[in-house]
Design a protein around this nucleic acid. Structure first.
Length: 893
DNA sequence: GCCTTGAGGTTTTTT
DNA sequence: ACCTCAAGGC
């Protein structure tokens, strides 16, 4: 309880919170219509609370009603975060504190924005349509830029490039510099640029070291060249959508002041995911200058150009004036987030932003939501215990008031390999889907498989196809990233924005028109030399003799097509135009004539594309949408199991959740450990926490002993996170029998991948199952090294799992000691972590081997020990290269 | 200019 | 194991 990070305000969980500060000053607008009257009533007391407040618990209600001043809502998983946000907005609107257009509500993903919009719609009806400033950071950035494009050096018709465009563009630049694009991959540089922009850096701001590390030290020049190129293309990338508004606000305080006047309330969702640029963006908008002069209106010219926020009532103008003249506006920013769910550090998110909130906004109210409405006590207990291993938390503990005795514990299962894992999960799903004795059955929609890395999905998909089990992959290969869709979009882009050279280049020879590299290069050169778009260059060059007759005719045809389509743009329904373009360009024919297996699907996707265009009023607005929203709506019609990554699962919940692949190297992911060290590990742990907290009633965690990585079979060891699960809430599956027959998976030598029939040793040390069954596998225990290891065993010996044949997995017992990481390293201040479930991934005892030892491994052959970490050995094998294995797997030679 | 073949790199997560 | 890219033949 005595958490050092505990913040002063709310130290009695569940108790009646005292207001941190006067909830608010009296409402600024007095009198007036019914809305204000309702507001007064709402403020007056609980008795007359409006409906929308009635279902809230005290903490939620406080978060909703503390409308004035800075507020940080720390909302644990499943504590009604979205509800608080949406109700808060409804409350602000209903009490007349602001008009819909005066609320800036930022989310991180499009999904979240949609969700919020629809839920606000439920609360306030039509009024939600008047909220133009509800959206993602990026979409709001676009809106700002379109409006003030000239201040950012763009024309308001600018194009937004996606990752693919960016990489192609950078590649051109690298080649133009005469650099080897193999040694300096465009993708790498694109990532670097993205990283810089996440920090708000322009070419001049990047650290010298960064600049030197790429392109023979020309990183900075290349970055600058890239920005220049974007400007000539009248284009910007994703990062610019954040950086350019920031720059604009800094360089044009008058414009910033406009928005200071405009936005009365700022709300930020998933604050823990904001990166430095987003943080600066928010600070600029939220932090009003102290001096009154800065906020004072500077004349009509600076008024926001859209007047949608100018209420019709005469009182409105008065109110506006009153606010800005009487007192400097205070900062009404409300950030909602959960430090324990910060999982985007790898792309620049700064958990620190949320940890620092109170310093940034002095006097901020901090409200914790810890009452969980989603999961069983077992699941919450598991999640809390797991996340308690992290340092640097603000500290929250979820609780539920709805523990039921018959809730099932969190299940941990083992499988031989990933195929087995998929098969077993499939069987479990089928079992759940079958009607039970009460004739109730689980919907597939209520189940989800959450994987660490997308390559894990394939195995499940394969299995489900075989079983005929419906599934849907969420966030997988994105609709708008498919080749045919991108081609189609490129056609549209050239039609709508004739200067879009990247799009032009993409499709000028798709389908094949005999316009190869040579022709393109010529076009390029002319366009560059004359400073005109390539389409114009093409238009001119076909009138000359410079091209050979064939390409010349072909190119003329292309140009004529585009000119014709451009003329049709304004007087032809855009879906119709799209079909015409596909037909006349020969694009549909191209796929019709394609004999490959994917071709029909691609044609189908093109139809789907046209269908999805119907919702938009014009081709332009459609393009705008697509640039920002790379995912297409999924049809939730059909009952299907959900498969997705842990990252894309954030914010969702399911009755039953499967978490496969809890193995060292995969989860926690090796790369996170390598690149992020301790904080990388903590982020992985938060990811595990996110995964666990997605489950409402049932949670199944899996790990396998063998996994194919980069096409090679690797033996794996259970994730350390398994060590960190609390015994009290977790049950290890005893045997395969309960799910009928996959227990045989543990038979030695199965699958032929494993060096003949010698079988597999128990990687977790000896267990009482080691002597069960026939003993061909046991010979390895006779080695001297093993004997020594045995002799050194401590109480930890008892906590081991067997994975022997037929037995599946069984928990044998628990050590009485604390977790090796909990108490041993004191990873959590002032908190004892007890009763952990143990699947040893790191031995308490030193390895029986030492660096340099010559060893033999059943599968990899002979090698030398290169490094030792606990019981994990890094071995340079003569044939197989360097591998990490458990010492139990090798024998001294 | 286009297509086939072979080599080499690659796979965490995404607005 | 898979995909992308370059080289070489047509």
């Amino acid at each position: 309880m005595s958490d050092p990070f505990d913040l002063p305000f709310f130290d009695e969980p569940g108790g009646e919170p005292a207001a941190p500060k006067p909830a608010a000053r009296p409402p600024e607008r007095s009198a007036g219509g019914g809305i204000a009257a309702r507001a007064m009533a709402a403020r007056g007391g609980q008795t007359q609370a409006p409906d929308y407040l009635s279902g809230l618990n005290p903490e939620q209600r406080l978060a909703v009603e503390t409308t004035e001043g800075p507020v940080l809502v720390l909302a644990g998983a499943g504590t009604g975060k979205t509800r608080v946000l949406t109700t808060r907005i409804a409350h602000i609107l209903a009490t007349g504190r602001a008009y819909p257009s005066q609320i800036l509500a930022v989310t991180f993903t499009n999904k979240a924005a949609r969700e919020m919009k629809s839920r606000i719609g439920v609360l306030v009806g039509e009024a939600v349509e008047g909220m133009p400033w509800l959206g993602t950071f990026h979409s709001i950035g676009v809106k700002l830029l379109r409006r003030h494009a000239e201040l950012a050096g763009l024309k308001s018709s600018f194009t937004i490039l996606d990752t693919d465009d960016v990489i192609r563009l950078i590649k051109q630049l690298i080649q133009a510099e005469g650099l080897d694009d193999k040694r300096w991959p465009a993708r790498t540089f694109a990532n670097m640029i993205d990283g810089w922009k996440n920090k708000g850096y322009g070419p001049k701001d990047i650290p010298e070291g960064d600049a030197r590390s790429f392109a023979n030290g020309k990183g900075r020049e290349l970055f600058q060249a890239y920005q220049d190129r974007l400007q000539t293309l009248n284009a910007c990338d994703f990062g610019d959508l954040l950086c350019l508004p920031i720059r604009m606000f800094r360089e044009h305080p008058d414009v910033l002041a406009e928005y200071h006047r405009k936005f009365k309330y700022i709300l930020v969702d998933e604050y823990q995911d904001t990166n430095t640029a987003q943080y600066m963006w928010l600070r600029l908008l939220a932090q009003r200058p102290k001096s009154r002069h800065d906020t004072a209106p500077q004349g009509g010219a600076n008024r926001p150009s859209d007047r949608s926020d100018a209420p019709a009532q005469a009182s409105a103008g008065r109110r506006d004036a009153a606010v800005s003249e009487k007192e400097p506006q205070q900062i009404n920013i409300c950030c909602v987030g959960d430090d324990d769910q910060s999982i985007y550090g790898w792309r620049g998110a700064e958990v620190d932003n949320i940890l620092r909130f109170e310093k940034d906004f002095p006097g901020a109210a901090v409200i914790r939501l810890e009452r969980n409405y989603r999961s069983t006590a077992h699941i919450l207990g598991t999640a809390s215990h797991l996340i308690a291993h992290n340092e640097g938390r603000l500290g929250k503990t979820l609780f539920t008031e709805h523990a039921r005795p018959d809730d099932s514990k969190v299940m941990v299962h083992a499988a031989w390999d990933s195929e087995e894992e998929a098969r077993a999960v499939g069987e479990t799903i089928e079992q759940l889907q079958r009607p039970d004795e009460n004739n109730r059955r689980h919907n597939l929609n209520d189940m989800a498989i959450l994987v660490r890395a997308s390559f894990q999905m394939r195995e499940f998909e394969d299995r489900f196809v075989t079983l005929g089990l419906n599934y849907r992959v969420i966030g997988g290969p994105r609709f708008y990233e498919r080749q045919e869709i991108r081609d189609a979009m490129a056609y549209f882009r050239v039609v709508a924005q004739p200067a879009d050279d990247l799009a032009f280049e993409r499709i000028v020879n798709t389908p094949k028109r005999g316009l190869g590299e040579t022709t393109i290069r010529q076009l390029h050169d002319i366009a560059r030399a004359r400073g005109v778009p390539m389409l114009n260059a093409a238009e001119d060059i076909v009138e000359t003799e410079e091209l050979k007759p064939k390409p010349r005719a072909s190119l003329r045809n292309v140009v004529e097509n585009f000119r014709r389509w451009q003329k049709m743009l304004d007087n032809t329904p855009h879906t119709e135009l799209a079909e015409i373009i596909f037909e006349e360009s020969g694009y549909t024919d191209m796929w019709k004539n394609d004999r490959s297996a994917e071709a029909p699907g691609r044609l189908e996707n093109l139809k789907e594309l046209i269908r999805s265009m119907e919702e938009y009023e014009s081709l332009r607005s459609f393009l705008e949408h697509v640039a920002l929203v790379m995912d297409a709506e999924q049809n939730a019609e059909q009952d299907a199991v959900n498969i997705m990554t842990l990252h894309s699962a954030k914010g969702l919940e399911f009755e039953t959740v499967f978490l496969p692949g809890w193995e060292e190297g995969l989860f926690p992911h090796q790369r996170s450990l390598d690149e992020g060290g301790r904080s990388g590990l903590e982020e992985e742990r938060r990811l595990a926490y996110v995964g666990v907290t997605r489950a409402k009633r049932n949670l199944h965690i899996w790990f396998v002993s063998n996994r194919r990585i980069h096409g090679l079979w690797q033996s794996t060891i259970p994730s350390r996170f398994l060590d960190e699960l609390p015994e009290a809430h977790v049950e290890v599956e005893e045997s395969g029998s309960s799910y009928g027959g996959y227990g045989g998976a543990f038979a030695p030598g199965r699958g032929g991948n494993y060096g003949g029939g010698a079988g597999r040793q128990n990687p977790y040390g000896a267990s009482r199952f080691d002597n069960v069954g026939s003993g061909s596998f046991s010979n390895t225990y006779a080695t001297p090294g093993w004997a020594r290891a045995q002799a050194n065993k401590t109480s930890a010996t008892d906590r081991n799992w067997g994975t022997r044949s037929g037995a599946g997995v069984e928990r044998i017992g628990y050590g009485e000691t604390d977790s090796l990481r909990g108490a041993g390293r004191g990873s959590v201040k002032g908190r004892t972590i007890e009763g952990e479930l143990v699947a040893k991934s790191v031995a308490d005892t030193p390895s029986a081997f030492s660096v340099g030892d010559r060893v033999f491994h059943q599968k990899f052959g002979n090698g030398n020990v290169a490094a030792i970490e606990g019981n994990k050995l890094t071995i340079d094998f003569d044939k197989a290269g360097q591998k990490r294995v458990l010492d139990g797997f090798v024998t001294g030679v």
